[in-house]
Amino acid sequence: MPDVFVNYRTGDGDQTATTLHNQLTARFGPDRIFRACKSIPPGAFFDEELTRGVRRSGVLLAVIGPDWIDHPALQRPDDWVRKELLEAFRCGIPVIPVLAGRRTERPTRSQLPGPLVRLADCQTLRYDNQNDGYDIQRIGDVLTDLIPALAQADKAGAKSTGPDTTQNPVISEPQGPIHTGPGNLYNNSAHVTGDNAISTFVAGENHGGIRQNFGAARRRDRDDER
């Protein structure tokens, strides 16, 4: 049984609806988020499944895009976006308008058809794809506050994931000096000389640090630059 019903209009909010469905499913688990094109099986009666999906849900997310309020279908009694909203109101199911995009405004009572004026009084959330991480997290957190089953699923998912115990592999340091230029090399000691010698091994206690000598030529270059 779905806990969240995603109400949206194709062509105005369907991309946001897809994102909500995918991200909330990833957080709470499969079969908890109802979206018509994914949740209605082939051969099922479309109208019956939609009505049943609304009635069985704990909350309805009404995705409102920038052209949602001006769509002519919203004025028709047979419009499914409208019918799903009215069914949620009749059943006492909380309706949360999700404003898609940064510039989409909350519908006002004067803009809405008479039967839908209650939608203007519903507290809204916003989903902006430029702020998607925070907005998705916020929407999910609100849903866990409203629906105890989602809160339990959220905790179970976090527990099964557990802390990150990945350990970085240990890379051993070279066991001995590396000699890159002329000069003396002592393989069995920490003594490395030469104009371009780099030592990567220190025998015994390291009181003096690691010395790197890149030759008198470089010192002369620096002296010339002063």
Rank of each mutant, 00 (worst) to 15 (best):
V59A: 03
F45W: 01
F45E: 07
V54I: 12
S160P: 06
D78H: 09
V170Q: 10
Q111Y: 05
L99G: 05
P94W: 06
S110A: 15
W68K: 13
P66H: 10
D47T: 02
G114S: 12
V59N: 03
A158Q: 15
Q137W: 02
E84D: 14
G114Q: 14
L150E: 14
N168W: 14
L86V: 11
P115N: 02
G176Y: 06
T165D: 12
N168L: 12
P169A: 03
P94R: 11
R55W: 02
V98T: 01
V142P: 06
G133M: 13
R103E: 13
T108L: 09
L60Q: 09
Q167D: 09
G140N: 06
R126P: 05
D164L: 13
L74D: 06
C122Q: 14
D141K: 15
N129M: 08
V98C: 09
T144K: 08
P77H: 04
Q152G: 00
G58Y: 01
P77V: 01
N129H: 12
Q175D: 14
L85K: 03
T166P: 02
G162K: 15
S110Q: 14
L86N: 06
R55E: 00
G101T: 06
V98Q: 01
A156L: 10
R82I: 08
P97W: 04
L146Y: 07
K83N: 12
L85D: 04
G58W: 01
G133D: 13
T108Y: 08
R82M: 10
T165I: 13
D67A: 06
R109C: 01
R76D: 15
P115K: 05
L146W: 12
E48A: 08
A62K: 00
